[in-house]
């Protein structure tokens, strides 16, 4: 007896996506608006010479982490109650977070482009102050790769943490660090954000680009597999 059906996996992914449309759209608009406001304020008061959008990914990263947590705590019971198996949910959920990560990465790239246009019109240099895979904001390919990976990693970490708590209750606290691994490891592997400073402080050498991306992908995949394994025979509460 097959434990999952392709049509149902697609249905799960589809419903998750359409169910989150408003939330995700709203959240990104909010972040974009905040950054536009911050940027405008700084420009008016101090004057900017560097990219503001550079810092835009921190908020969304952690928002996506919490979205991942909700997958197993809020969504899994509703799907199982409607006849879906946990395996189908784990796979459909995987498709869902991949879609979310890609779309969010696209928003980041678009944000850079818009900022570039605004800065260009104002004659300002769009200088990046934090380390990334890319060296300038118009390297769209690298922007997309970096953020897709980072966002995916945070979604997976959140999902894994949420599942651990749903299954084990508060004793899952002990598993928070291992579950956060995908997020941490990916940041490290592609040497973005805060990691170069940490790496330098600890004396680690950071891997080169293709190896880093491959490592990041591997870690994300491992995180998703761990979630699948923990979900597939998880008993559901009936109280």
């Amino acid at each position: 007896m097959p434990a999952l059906r392709a049509d149902r996996v697609r249905a799960v992914a589809g419903v998750l996506v359409s169910g989150h449309r408003c939330v995700l759209g709203g959240v990104w608009l909010l972040f974009a608006a905040i950054f536009a406001l911050v940027g405008a304020t700084i420009a008016a008061t101090d004057g900017i010479t560097t990219s503001v959008w550079d810092f835009a990914s921190y908020g969304p990263k952690y928002f996506l982490l919490s979205l991942g947590v909700m997958l197993s705590t809020a969504h899994l019971p509703a799907y199982v109650a409607n006849g879906v198996t946990r395996r189908e949910f784990a796979l459909g959920g995987g498709l869902f977070i991949a879609a979310v990560a890609l779309v969010s990465a696209a928003v980041m790239a678009a944000g850079y482009l818009v900022e570039g246009l605004i800065y260009g019109a104002a004659g300002l240099p769009q200088e990046l102050t934090t380390p990334h895979l890319y060296t300038s904001a118009d390297q769209i390919g690298l922007v997309l790769v970096e953020f897709a990976l980072v966002f995916l990693a945070h979604l997976v970490s959140g999902w894994l943490i949420g599942t651990a708590f749903a299954r084990l209750g508060w004793s899952a606290i002990a598993l928070v660090v291992p579950a956060a691994l995908p997020a941490l490891a990916t940041d490290l592997a592609i040497n973005s954000g805060w990691t170069p400073a940490a790496a330098a402080a600890l004396g680690w050498t950071v891997p080169r680009l293709p190896a880093g991306v491959a490592l990041g992908l591997a870690v994300v995949l491992a995180g998703w597999v761990a979630t699948y394994l923990v979900t597939r025979d998880m008993p559901l509460k009936t109280t």
Partner: peptide
Amino acid sequence: EDPQVTEQVALVRDPGPLY
């Protein structure tokens, strides 16, 4: 975890999981 069975069973609880 058997989709052939779970898609044939509907359990209605009071009030059950609703978003």
